[in-house]
Amino acid sequence: MSEPTPLTPANELRASLTRDGFVRIPNAFSPSDLARFRTAAQHATARARAGEWPFVRTVPKQFPPWPHLLHPSMPAADRKVFAESYFGDVMVGAVTALLDCRRDDLVMELYNMLVCPPKDFALRWHRDDIGPDVPADVELERLGEPMMHAQWNLALYPDSSLVVVPGSHRRSRTEQERKADPYEDEMPGQVKVSMEAGDIVFYNNNILHRGVYDCKAERLTLHGTMGLSGADPARSRNILQHGIGDWAAECDFDCLPGHMATLATGMQRRLIGMGTGKEVGFSQQD
């Protein structure tokens, strides 16, 4: 499996994501950017652990809703840094390359942070938007739908928590995969995705995957998605189920540099156009 760089042609990035279901872009951010992102992430983590930031997801919860780093109640200085990491040229350039789209096609979606839990913990094997009881023919049909979003992990410290089965986003589960224990430690063909600080891994959210977390590891990983305008109602549910429609209109991006603020405001407007998400239900539940 290839390991593209930020200079890798867009068609190679897309080919890797299409073939394997994930692609790693190493050293995407400079040391100075990483230092800023880490500081904001450390502040947010400290506030959450002190009970001063209520929008958290705690173990053993696996499925939505997720918190959001751009929530208006996030302190302004840190929210600005998170916004720059999300709407900045590096991330947006990678997303538009992978989705083969224009910047004006993008929709603001989700952004949260994955941190080290207080004890070792693992998620069960899953596809984000296809439940485990879906029949094989329906599963294959769903997997064949066009990709209308990009999903990523941005590691601020080395991170090997993501485990995937390469290629499983292009096929229904095998009989062995269907019958496996949801917490199976050795799924056939699995790969542990190792990231260094500053790496971004983009992955198809319906690849068969899980997270396995070592409580002794230092971990701050920014986890986000961006979508394309015109996505179907299922994608709207997948995003709005997290409650983002309740507060998205309150976000103010005037603190960002001019071109970034313009992009962010446009992406915000397209998100708001999806609706509030009242009573959309959940794709999956714990």
Rank of each mutant, 00 (worst) to 15 (best):
Q190M: 11
R235N: 09
R210Y: 08
I200H: 00
H209G: 08
V201Q: 13
L220C: 07
V193D: 05
R210D: 03
W247L: 00
S236V: 02
L220I: 04
V191Q: 01
Q190D: 07
D252S: 09
P233A: 13
I239C: 15
N205P: 14
G243F: 14
F202Q: 14
A231K: 04
R237E: 10
C215H: 15
H223D: 09
I239Y: 13
D214H: 02
C251P: 00
Q241R: 01
M226A: 05
D232S: 08
N238S: 12
Y213F: 14
H242P: 03
I244R: 00
G243N: 05
Q241E: 08
M195E: 08
R219M: 06
V191A: 01
I207N: 00
A217E: 11
D252G: 05
I207S: 02
Q190G: 03
I244L: 02
N205M: 12
S194G: 09
G198D: 06
A234C: 08
K192E: 14
F202K: 12
G243Y: 15
S194K: 14
W247T: 02
G198L: 13
R219V: 00
A249W: 07
D232R: 12
H223E: 06
G211D: 05
K216F: 13
Y203R: 05
M226N: 05
D246W: 08
A248V: 10
A249L: 07
L240A: 04
A248H: 03
G189A: 06
E218Y: 07
K192S: 15
P188C: 01
G230L: 14
L240C: 11
M195D: 05
I239K: 13
R235L: 12
K192G: 15
D214M: 01
D246K: 10
P233K: 03
D252Q: 09
R219L: 06
D199N: 09
S236L: 11
K216D: 12
A231H: 06
Y203F: 15
T225W: 01
I200V: 14
S236F: 11
C251L: 15
L228S: 02
R219D: 04
D232W: 04
A197G: 09
G211E: 05
S194C: 07
T221W: 07
G224V: 08
H223L: 03
G243H: 11
D199H: 11
A248K: 01
T221S: 12
L220W: 00
E196V: 03
G198N: 07
T221Q: 08
N204M: 03
Y203E: 02
G230K: 11
P188Y: 06
A248D: 04
G224E: 09
G198S: 10
Y213A: 06
H223Q: 08
L228H: 02
G189K: 04
M226S: 05
A249Q: 14
D199S: 10
N204E: 10
N238K: 05
A197Q: 13
L240N: 06
A234E: 15
L208Y: 06
L208I: 00
H242G: 12
G245P: 02
A248E: 03
R210A: 04
